[in-house]
Design a protein around this nucleic acid. Structure first.
Length: 415
DNA sequence: TCTGGGGTCCTAGGACCC
DNA sequence: TCTGGGGTCCTAGGACCC
C-alpha cells in the first residue's frame, strides 16, 4: 500500500450563501437562504435551524423565522467558483472539477516544489480566503473517496488530513451516509440490518450485502469501506447527456400546456448541443403527475439529431404516448427532456439524411436541412443579442420561471 | 403546505443475434 | 424441433449527487 496521502478534495463551504455574505457584509453572521420559492443554498447560520438546499422556501421560513432570502448573483458564483479551482491549478495539472464549488487534485510528486500535501492544502485554504474572501474546506487522503469524506469531516472552514497508517480506524467509526452512493434509501436498507457505521458495513459478509443492495452497489461500497477504490483523477470529463426540465405546478393535461413547454425545453437543449457541434440519438421524456409519480419514455433513433424542431416533435410524440397510457391522470407537475448517446459530428451533415425529412415534408413544414439552417440563424442572433432576442413565439413568455435562468446555466455540465 | 434543475449510474426484463 | 448459453442493445424505473 502506497503510504502517502496525495489526493486533495477541496469544497467551498455553503458556497452560494458565502458569496452573498461576501458581497453584502450586512448579511454576515446571519441566517440567509439563496432562492425564494425553493432554497438553493443556505448559510451555516441557517443550516443550524435545519434549513437545507432543495427545501421549499415556506418550510425554511417556518424552521427559521429570521431567515433572510437573497436573490442569486449567478455570474459571481461562476466567477468565484472558477477562481477557487484555479488556485488548485497552481499546484498540479491533475485537477478534476466535480461541480461549481468542488474539485479533486492529486499533488503527488510536487512536494519538493510546494511542500507536503498537508502544507499545500493549508496554502490553498489560506489563498482562497485571502484572494477571494471565501471559506473552503479541504480533505487530504490516499484515495479520492477518503479525501472527499475528509473534507466533509473538516467542514466548516477546516482541514482534515487522513494518515494512511490509521485510515481504516478513521473511516470505520463514521456513519454510512458519508459514503458516496449512500442516500436515504440505502441508508434505511442498511439500518434495517443493523448496519450504521462504515466499519459495520466493511465487516458485513459480501453475500448478504449483495442480497441487500445488488452486486454492483455492494462491491462498490465494500471497496469504499476498505478504502481500496483505485479511482484516478480524471481531468477532462464530458457530459454523456444533456437535458432540461420545467416544473409546472399543477397544469391540466392539454396540448396547449405541454406543446409550448416541450418546445422551450427542446430549444434549450438543441442550442446547447449545436453550440458544441454535438447531436444525440436517444431522446428521453419524463412526465411527472400531480401526485409526483413520474413516468419516463425513451426512443433511440438511427441517426443523431440536434435540431430544435425535430427534438420537440419526437418529445411530443413520446409525451403523447405517456398520456395515452395514463388516461386517469389529469394534471402534470413537471416535464423533462434529455438527449443521450451524444456524438460529436461535423454539424453540416446533421439531419440531412434523416427519415424525419419525409415526415416533415408535409405542406408548410420544413425539412431537416432547412430546420438546421433556421436553428443556426437563431443561434447566431442569440449569440449577439442574447437568448431572449428570438424564440419560438409564445414560449418565451409562457415559461413560468420557477428558477432563474442563471441558476440553470450554473448547473449545466460542459458538453 | 407535497419540492428545482442538471446530471450519473445501476437493474431487470425483453428483443435479437450467434 | 427442442434445449442451452452468451453477448449486446434498448427501455423503464430508481437511487444518488451537486
Amino acid at each position: 500500500m502506497p503510504a502517502t496521502a496525495t489526493i486533495l478534495h477541496a469544497d467551498l463551504d455553503a458556497f452560494y450563501a458565502s458569496v452573498e455574505q461576501l458581497l453584502d457584509p450586512s448579511l454576515r453572521g446571519k441566517a440567509i437562504a439563496v432562492g425564494g420559492g425553493v432554497v438553493l443554498a443556505a448559510s451555516y447560520e441557517a443550516k443550524a435551524f435545519g434549513v437545507r438546499g432543495g427545501m421549499p422556501g415556506r418550510r425554511a421560513k417556518e424552521l427559521c423565522p429570521q431567515l433572510i432570502f437573497v436573490g442569486g448573483h449567478f455570474k459571481e458564483y461562476q466567477r468565484l467558483g472558477d477562481a477557487a479551482i484555479k488556485v488548485l491549478d497552481d499546484f498540479t495539472p491533475l485537477v478534476e472539477r466535480i461541480s461549481i464549488d468542488e474539485a479533486f487534485a492529486d499533488v503527488a510528486g510536487t512536494e519538493h516544489l510546494f511542500g507536503t500535501p498537508a502544507v499545500i492544502a493549508e496554502t490553498v485554504r489560506r489563498r482562497v480566503r485571502a484572494e477571494l474572501g471565501l471559506p473552503i474546506s479541504v480533505g487530504v487522503a490516499r484515495t479520492k473517496h477518503l479525501a472527499k469524506i475528509a473534507s466533509q469531516v473538516a467542514k466548516p472552514d477546516g482541514l482534515c488530513v487522513v494518515d494512511p497508517a490509521t485510515e481504516l480506524e478513521f473511516l470505520h467509526d463514521l456513519p454510512v451516509e458519508l459514503m458516496w452512493g449512500v442516500g436515504p434509501a440505502t441508508k434505511a436498507r442498511l439500518a434495517a440490518e443493523g448496519v450504521v457505521t462504515i466499519g459495520q458495513l466493511a465487516n458485513t459478509p459480501g453475500r448478504s450485502l449483495e442480497k441487500l443492495l445488488g452486486p454492483a452497489a455492494s462491491e462498490k461500497l465494500r471497496a469504499l469501506a476498505w478504502n481500496t477504490d483505485p479511482r484516478a483523477i480524471v481531468t477532462d470529463r464530458r457530459a454523456r447527456s444533456a437535458g432540461a426540465q420545467s416544473a409546472l405546478g399543477k397544469k391540466p393535461v392539454e396540448e396547449r400546456v405541454f406543446r409550448p413547454t416541450l418546445r422551450h425545453l427542446a430549444d434549450r437543449i438543441g442550442s446547447r448541443l449545436r453550440a458544441k457541434s454535438l447531436s444525440g440519438r436517444t431522446v428521453t421524456v419524463r412526465v411527472r403527475f400531480a401526485d409526483l409519480s413520474a413516468v419516463t419514455r425513451a426512443t433511440t433513433l438511427d441517426a443523431p439529431i440536434a435540431a430544435t424542431t425535430t427534438l420537440a416533435e419526437i418529445a411530443e410524440e413520446l409525451v403523447r404516448g405517456v398520456l395515452a397510457d395514463h388516461p386517469e391522470e389529469r394534471f402534470i407537475s413537471l416535464l423533462a427532456i434529455a438527449v443521450s448517446h451524444l456524438e460529436r459530428q461535423p454539424a453540416l451533415q446533421l439531419e440531412f439524411s434523416l427519415g424525419f425529412d419525409d415526415e416533415a415534408r408535409r405542406p408548410g413544414t420544413r425539412t431537416g436541412a432547412s430546420r438546421w439552417l433556421a436553428d443556426r440563424a437563431m443561434d447566431k442572433v442569440r449569440a449577439r443579442f442574447g437568448w431572449e432576442a428570438v424564440g419560438y413565439g409564445s414560449v418565451v413568455l409562457e415559461a413560468a420561471r420557477s428558477v432563474p435562468d442563471g441558476f440553470r446555466e450554473l448547473a449545466e455540465k460542459d458538453l
